[in-house]
Design a protein around this nucleic acid. Structure first.
Lengths: 199, 199
DNA sequence: TACCCGTGTTGTCAACGCCTACATATCCGC
DNA sequence: GCGGATATGTAGGCGTTGACAACACGGGTA
C-alpha cells in the first residue's frame, strides 16, 4: 500500500494510537465531558463503529488516557529529580515543580487522572499511578536514610506530598487560584513540608 | 388545593428545591456524569422540559450543587472549629478532620466541587468556595496573632492546608488510598503542617 | 489455495440536552 | 376582585450520542 495515499485503506493500520492522539487533543481543547467517540472516529477518518474494537466502552478510552498521563507524569518527575543541583531540598523542589508544570500544561488530563470513574478492577490506572508516585517516595526514602528527614512511613509521607501539590493544582484548575501563583504556592508548601518533616 | 393529593397539580410548588434534592441523591448513587435532567424530571413527576425553567443548562444545576456543597462544607468546618477543646492544634485537627469526613460522605459531590467546568464568570461557585475557606484562614490568622504560627501570607497558608486535605481526599476518591487510611493521613499531614509553620 | 479472525462498516435503538410553541397558574395594579 | 402580565409547567421535535448486531474486508497461516 502506498503510504502517500492517505485515503481509506479498509484497515487503518494503527487506529488505536490514532484515536488516543485525537482524544488527547480533544481533551486538551474541550475537556473530557465533551469528548465524543464518534467525533474522534470522524477526525481519524473511520466509521463511527470502528473505535469500539479498541475501546469497547467510552470509559476504556478515558482510562487509557489517564494511564498514559500517569506514565508521562512519573517520567517527568523522575527526570527532574535526576538532573541538576544534587542538593536534597533542591531536588524535592524540582520534583514538585515538574509536577506543577505538568499539571498546568495538562489541566483536563489531570482532572481525568483524578476522576473517580476508573474501572473498578483497575489494575490499570491505579497501578500506573503508583508508578508515578515512586520517584517522590524514593526521594523521601533517601532523605530519611541520609538523616535529612525524620523517620516515618515513607509511603505515607510521599502520599501527603503528592496530595499537597495535586490539591494546589486542582485549585488552579477550577479557578480558585490564578495559575501564576501556583509556582510560588508549591514552593512555600514544599518549604513547609521540609521543615515539618525535618529530623 | 388539598396537600394530600400529591398527584400533578400543574405547578409543582417548589420544583427547584425538589430537583436539587433528587440531583443530590442521583449524584450520590451514580455520579455526576450519569446525572440526567430528564431522569430528575421523571423522578419528581414533571415533564422533561420543566427543569429548564430553573436550570437553563445542565451545568447550571451542577453548579448549584457544587455551591450548596461548599456552603455545607464551610459550615461544618466552622462548627468543628468552634466546639470542643479550645487548644489551637486540636482545633486545627478538628477542622481538617471535619473536612475529611465531609469528603468521605460526599465523594461525588467533592469531585463535582473540584471540577473545572463551572461557569466562567462564576461569581457563584468560586465565591461560595472562598466562604468555605474562611474558617481555615481565620484559624491560621489567629495562630499567627497568638504567635503559635510563624508569620506569612495567611491566605496562602490557608490554601495550602486546604489543598493538602482536598488532595488526600481526592486520592481516596479515585481509589489510590483506602478510605480507612484517610483519617490517619490527615492527622499526620496536619502534624507536619503545624511543625512546618511553627515560629 | 482456503480458511480464520482481527479489524472496519453499516444500520439501528433508546436516551439525552436543548429548543420552540403552547397551556396553565399566580401575582399585582386597578 | 378583575384582568392582563408574568412565572412556571407541558408537548413535541431536532440533532447527537454510546452501545449493539450483522456484515464486509483482508492479512497471516496451515
Amino acid at each position: 500500500m502506498s503510504e502517500q495515499n492517505e485515503q481509506r485503506r479498509y484497515h487503518h493500520g494503527d487506529l488505536r494510537a490514532a484515536l488516543l492522539e485525537a482524544a488527547e487533543h480533544s481533551l486538551r481543547s474541550h475537556g473530557a465531558a465533551q469528548l465524543s467517540l464518534r467525533d474522534l472516529a470522524r477526525e481519524v477518518g473511520v466509521s463511527h463503529g470502528a473505535p469500539r474494537r479498541h475501546f469497547p466502552e467510552r470509559q476504556d478510552l478515558l482510562d487509557a488516557l489517564a494511564e498514559n498521563g500517569y506514565a508521562r507524569l512519573g517520567e517527568r518527575i523522575r527526570r527532574a529529580v535526576a538532573s541538576g543541583d544534587p542538593d536534597f531540598a533542591a531536588r524535592v523542589q524540582r520534583a514538585t515543580s515538574a509536577f506543577a508544570h505538568f499539571a498546568m500544561e495538562n489541566r483536563a488530563l489531570l482532572e481525568l487522572m483524578n476522576a473517580a470513574k476508573h474501572r473498578p478492577e483497575g489494575t490499570g490506572v491505579p497501578r500506573s499511578a503508583e508508578v508515578a508516585f515512586e520517584p517522590l517516595v524514593d526521594l523521601i526514602r533517601e532523605g530519611q536514610e541520609r538523616r535529612l528527614l525524620r523517620v516515618g512511613s515513607v509511603e505515607e509521607i510521599g502520599i501527603i506530598l503528592y496530595a499537597t501539590i495535586n490539591g494546589l493544582a486542582t485549585l488552579v484548575n477550577n479557578g480558585l487560584i490564578d495559575a501564576e501563583r501556583l509556582e510560588e504556592l508549591v514552593e512555600i508548601a514544599v518549604d513547609q513540608f521540609l521543615r515539618g518533616t525535618a529530623p
